[in-house]
Amino acid sequence: MTELPRRKILVLFSAGAVASAAGGFPGLAVAGAPVMEVARSPDCGCCGGWIEHMRAAGFTVNVRMTDDLGPLKAQLGVPPELHSCHTGAVGGYAIEGHVPAGDVLRLLREQPLAIGLAVPGMPLGSPGMEVGGETEPYEVILFTASGREVFARH
């Protein structure tokens, strides 16, 4: 694949064009549902919980398994300090980690000039990281090429 600008990659990834070219995103979208493409490690169980959270919120989620998410994160412009265990794209935005569905819906509704949202690490109590009722406070970060700001606190 030739080098593409990050925004074009996001648009293609979220539209499924990159996925269909690679043959890695099966499934059909439900009319009107936001379609999200997600790349995740086959060895990570919490990713599946987050994907189910997104589907329960009305997203159509197409999943591609990969052992190396680094190149995709770099292409989409996700800074290393914001990395988590899975990476998605929807509506031209990167979604990194355990971002709650409500925050993704707000992002799509407000459409700020940004690369995307991230929940760095794997905070307990975030979607997909529900472990024995334990929770810890965490922030959802809106990131651009030049900065970051808190988008939501949970």
Rank of each mutant, 00 (worst) to 15 (best):
M1T: 12
T2N: 10
P5K: 13
I9F: 13
V11D: 14
V11R: 12
V11E: 15
L12N: 15
L12I: 03
S14H: 08
S14E: 10
G16K: 13
A17M: 15
A17H: 15
S20A: 11
A21L: 15
G23C: 07
G24Y: 03
P26A: 01
P26Y: 08
L28G: 12
L28M: 11
L28A: 14
A29L: 08
V30T: 15
A31I: 12
A31P: 07
G32N: 13
A33M: 11
A33V: 12
M36L: 07
M36Q: 10
M36P: 02
E37L: 06
V38R: 06
V38F: 05
A39W: 14
S41Y: 05
D43H: 02
D43S: 04
C44P: 05
C44Q: 03
C44W: 01
G45Y: 08
G48Q: 07
W50N: 02
I51K: 02
H53V: 07
M54C: 10
R55Q: 14
A56V: 14
A56M: 14
A57M: 13
G58E: 08
G58M: 09
T60N: 07
N62R: 15
R64Q: 08
T66L: 00
T66V: 09
D67N: 10
L69Q: 12
P71F: 01
K73A: 03
Q75F: 09
L76C: 01
G77F: 13
V78M: 05
V78G: 01
P80Y: 05
H83E: 13
S84L: 04
S84T: 07
H86Y: 03
T87S: 05
T87V: 06
G88F: 05
V90L: 05
G91T: 15
A94S: 13
A94G: 09
A94Y: 09
E96A: 06
E96K: 10
G97Q: 00
H98Q: 02
H98R: 04
V99W: 00
G102L: 10
G102D: 14
D103M: 10
R106E: 11
R106N: 03
L108V: 10
R109A: 13
R109W: 09
R109F: 00
E110F: 05
Q111C: 00
Q111G: 07
L113S: 09
I115R: 14
G116K: 09
G116R: 05
L117N: 05
A118R: 08
V119Q: 06
P120W: 01
P123C: 05
P123A: 04
L124W: 05
M129A: 07
G133A: 08
E134W: 02
E134V: 02
T135G: 06
T135H: 02
E136A: 01
P137V: 03
P137A: 08
Y138S: 04
E139Q: 12
E139N: 07
V140N: 06
V140F: 05
I141D: 02
T144I: 04
A145C: 06
G147L: 12
G147C: 14
G147P: 11
R148P: 08
E149G: 06
A152K: 10
H154L: 09
